[in-house]
């Protein structure tokens, strides 16, 4: 007979050759390769302190007739640790989703079961095809003070574990970041940048459930961010940008009344408008330009007339 055998990493494993007696002459193979006699105790195969690499197909043949008497697929793995569970509403008030993962791999198949209870009511968590470790729950009620209790149980042939989350409806509301963030210089304004963005497409009803936004920006040459909070609208003009410096800009969103801030949006870069440099062409134009500009040049107020380098306007 052939079947799957699960064993924990580090376990000692004994395999019998089907119904063969202990003292029968047999041959054992692992993935088709003969196993050394040192691993045998009579016709039993003994594997000490197994590790992951010893997973494989083990077969036992009767004496010299090569008649297959026993076959098993050994799977070495671990029981599941407490799963990491996260629930979040990024499309409030439609519903929320829960997603989970195991902190460490088990190397053998696991099955997950999730239960969502609201007060005394069992709620359905509709599994997503992809990603597999995620499911959705529709809000049947809004504005409830009753907490939600979500329990995720993970089971595999070597063990079982679970995690429970209890939360309020409002606490898990966290929009996705704003989308289509665009930053542009403002012509003839060396200290301005115009930033615009859109509500996250996953947020279903911005009219009834408006989002507010948080904008952060800084010149690449500095580490310190500047922040501004905006309670309506999806654009803002930065008016205190350093002239000529490239800026990095990001936006975050939050429901106007409840929940937490989204992650920061994708960063965009922009540099404020700068005056086009005047191009020097032929000699004549230079002379002409120089005489024209000298007559209009005024010494900056801080320069003293008697300064060596000072150029006196005529």
């Amino acid at each position: 007979d052939s079947h799957i055998q699960y064993e924990r990493v580090g376990a000692d494993v004994t395999m019998k050759c089907g119904s063969m007696d202990w003292d029968a002459a047999v041959t054992w193979t692992a993935n088709g390769t003969d196993i050394d006699e040192s691993h045998l105790n009579g016709s039993y195969l003994i594997l000490k302190n197994v590790d992951l690499s010893q997973s494989g197909q083990y077969s036992c043949y009767e004496g010299s007739s090569w008649h297959l008497k026993y076959q098993t697929s050994l799977r070495v793995g671990t029981p599941p640790k407490e799963p990491v569970l996260m629930c979040r509403s990024n499309n409030y008030p439609k519903g929320f989703y829960c997603s989970w993962h195991l902190p460490t791999p088990t190397y053998i198949p696991n099955s997950f079961n999730i239960s969502v209870i609201h007060g005394t009511k069992d709620m359905v968590c509709e599994k997503d095809a992809v990603p597999k470790n995620r499911c959705h729950i529709r809000y049947l009620q809004l504005f409830s003070t009753v907490k939600y209790k979500v329990t995720l149980t993970v089971t595999n042939p070597l063990g079982k574990n679970f995690t429970t989350l209890t939360f309020d409806e409002f606490a898990i509301v966290k929009p996705d970041p704003p989308e289509s963030v665009v930053a542009k210089p403002v012509p003839n304004n060396p200290r301005r940048l115009e930033v615009s963005w859109q509500n996250p497409s996953s947020w279903p009803d911005p009219d009834s459930f408006p989002l507010k936004f948080f904008l952060r920006y800084r010149p690449l040459i500095l580490d310190q961010w500047q922040h501004v909070e905006l309670s309506d609208g999806t654009s803002h003009t930065i008016t205190d940008a350093y002239a000529g410096k490239e800026y990095i800009i990001q936006v975050a969103a939050k429901d106007n009344d409840i929940g937490t801030w989204s992650d920061w949006s994708v960063a965009v870069h922009a540099t404020p408008w700068t005056e086009e440099p005047k191009h020097l062409t032929t000699e004549a134009q230079i002379t002409e330009t120089t005489s024209a500009s000298t007559s209009s040049f005024m010494a900056p107020p801080t320069t003293k007339i008697c300064d060596k380098g000072a150029v006196v306007g005529s």
Binding site: Q141, L142, F143, T145, V146
Partner: peptide
């Protein structure tokens, strides 16, 4: 703060179905 308080008689429940 995290205590669950059963619905108290006479206190209007904000929870509503098919609010929209």
């Amino acid at each position: 703060a995290s205590a669950s308080v059963a619905a108290v008689e006479g206190v209007p429940q904000a929870a509503v179905e098919r609010w929209d």
